[in-house]
Design a protein around this nucleic acid. Structure first.
Lengths: 378, 378
DNA sequence: GTTAACTGTTTAATCAGTTTAACAATCCAT
DNA sequence: ATGGATTGTTAAACTGATTAAACAGTTAAC
């Protein structure tokens, strides 16, 4: 009979409703000045503001959205009421009505330490900073097998959680990416198919060329390569440039000079083990990322090889706080922060329908430090 | 006159509306089988399902929410229609109506590398996993000064972005925390005031005791301490236990044995520098976290001190991949993943109104590795 | 001095759900 | 056969915003 009381509390739902599947600034605070518990502040809606200001809710909405059809006088008058009442528009209602959530999702690969990874972290910083500036919030998801199986990545759009998705650490092998083809999304630091998905990635070919030039100029001819994820287009870029540059220098490329290091520290160490035993004449190692390079250096040092005197090592990424490693690492600097910024920027442009398919490649540069030196003479 | 066309596209808003302030499973994909671009799938609403199933929208809603008032037969019949149509409830409408968003925010401190931090990463993993299981999404925010000044942390609730907030890496010095007092929130790995805020933290007193016991048992008597953030209650716990344990062992505590390492690698190195010059007789260092411990070891090794032969070092955190460091680090293991899980669990319970003020402390244990040894005899 | 164009505001429909109260239909006891 | 309790379903109100279309009041043009 009577309308539901405003502010009445209800029980929150215990389960997620997914319908489709039926299964399953530092300021010192004086604690004494803080009342132990306060009633939650009562919600002020657009109707309350409209009533108080003596206008319609449409007018309030237009003031909030800075619609130019509202006169200066009305704008000021209503804005004063808004400020005095502390009105904040309910974003759920805004999004329901406007069809835009102003939220983006970042999908990370299902690695145990994805959240603590320097590579992802740097990209995330860029994404987060730019998203904030563009007035967007960030949802973080991890694409575990179960997650994909349940179609949660599609729900992200279909249930209106987000306007767009940024995918980090995936490549063509990850079939779920093509499920997102029809929605706003961007693949970060890789590419996919031919004009199938939007992407932004670092120029791994340029980076590989810079690294190889460096090693060749230092006189190295027996150069090993610790790669990873050969199914990844950008990883293949590096491998291709590696072999091409060797050939161009008149060096015969040996299959035994290459090993998979799985992008990990341990993998890098294992690969260094393998490579140094397969060919004792290797004087340099090119590594697909810094983590593998560090693993390799650790292995080499522990097994009596001096770095760089016996073997030079070059990495990829230029992860922070590694300049302190001993020896410090010569590496290809990837503009990961900028990559995140660009990816976020492009995605939002796509959401706003302003641009066509995005395909951008960001330049790299070599950072020469202590893990490389002129080739040893026998 | 005519109703707006369904699926008609509108322009997304260019600005954030904040009213209050007027200022400012790997599967290979065959690309050829993918149509270049598809029309976005048309939205299916609860009304479409109701019509198709020949029931009211209330019934569909109750089926989706597994309301027991719906008969078995109706449930099955409607569920079939839901599945066949691929209906997914719009979460914005659900949340607007139900008053619960099923979204939690994680607020990180404004550090440059907060997203790539092993400490935060581990906690985040726990939070993320548990949030997923509880049917909640995660929003990630960084509390930059501007962010707090603009009251964005309060908007998180007031504009219905989230149901609750987890705060990582903050302490009593961070005044904005008290703004959140009246909303569901939990302070992670610290405490605040006396029953003012919910919190879960590791038992730093226990950890400090374990570390000191170890060092004292190894015969050390001149033990230095590299602390950080002395305004933090948990950091003070460690300092207090450190001094108490020394006194209990009949050792006079010297002010010159303590230095602030700012929780960073460089800070740890600088503190080690300071401490070893202030007192050449120090045989052990207790460090507030692993990063400082590593910085200290790096400094010590580079300056001719052998670790552990000359100086033993104990850390705090037990960050992954550090077991490989040389020497590997003896450290107090903090159950950070479990901390994240517990924090998330408790927060959701609070949101559901099931429990009172949360104040939980998780046990630690010492991991003995190579950076500690029996005290050197002169 | 009408008519047309422009301004600023409001009305009402819409977004897509949840929930309360009412209602119809069946069941059991009187 | 009548009344009350029980069960399953629906109508309608409600969540809090946006926006197209209508409308009233001025001003400009013919």
């Amino acid at each position: 009979m009577t309308a539901k009381l405003k502010g009445e509390t209800r029980e929150p739902p215990d389960i997620t409703r997914t319908a489709v599947t039926a299964a399953a600034e530092p300021i010192q605070v004086n604690f004494n000045s803080l009342p132990a518990e306060e009633n939650p502040p009562e919600r002020i809606s657009i109707r309350d503001v409209a009533k108080q200001a003596g206008v319609s809710i449409a007018t309030v909405s237009m003031v909030v959205n800075q619609n130019p059809r509202i006169s200066r006088g009305t704008h000021v008058r209503v804005q004063r009421v808004i400020d005095s009442m502390g009105y904040r528009p309910n974003r759920l209602a805004q999004s329901l009505s406007s069809r835009y959530t102003q939220v983006l999702a970042v999908i990370l690969p299902p690695l145990r330490h994805a959240f603590a990874d320097a590579y992802f972290g740097e990209i995330l910083s860029g994404i987060s900073d730019r998203a904030g500036k563009l007035g967007h919030k960030l949802l973080i998801e991890q694409a575990k097998p179960q997650y994909i199986k349940e179609g949660k990545h599609i729900e992200l759009y279909e249930r209106r959680f987000v306007d767009g998705v940024l995918c980090l650490g995936f490549n063509e092998k990850h079939g779920f990416l093509s499920d997102l083809r029809q929605y706003p999304m961007i693949l970060v630091d890789n590419r996919f198919g031919e004009g199938v998905l939007d992407y932004v990635h670092c120029d791994y070919r340029m980076g590989a060329k810079q690294a190889m030039n460096c090693l060749l100029q230092l006189g190295h001819r027996n150069i090993g390569m610790i790669y990873a994820a050969p199914e990844s287009p950008t990883a293949r870029d590096v491998l291709e440039v590696y072999t091409t540059e060797l050939r161009n220098a008149g060096i015969e490329v040996k299959e035994s000079w290459m090993a998979d290091g799985c992008f990990t520290d341990e993998g890098g160490a294992a690969a260094a083990d393998l490579l140094t035993h397969r060919d004792k004449d290797l004087t340099a190692l090119l590594c697909g990322n810094d983590k593998m390079a560090l693993g390799a250096i650790r292995y080499l040092v522990e097994h009596g090889h001096k770095v760089p005197q016996d073997i030079s090592v070059v990495g990829f990424d230029d992860i922070q706080h590694l300049a302190y490693a001993n020896p410090s690492l010569t590496t290809v600097h990837l503009p990961l922060y900028e990559l995140g910024v660009a990816a976020c920027e492009r995605l939002v442009s796509r959401i706003r329908g302003k641009v066509d398919r995005v395909a951008e490649v960001l330049p790299t540069h070599l950072v020469l430090r202590e893990s490389t030196s002129i080739v040893r003479t026998r």
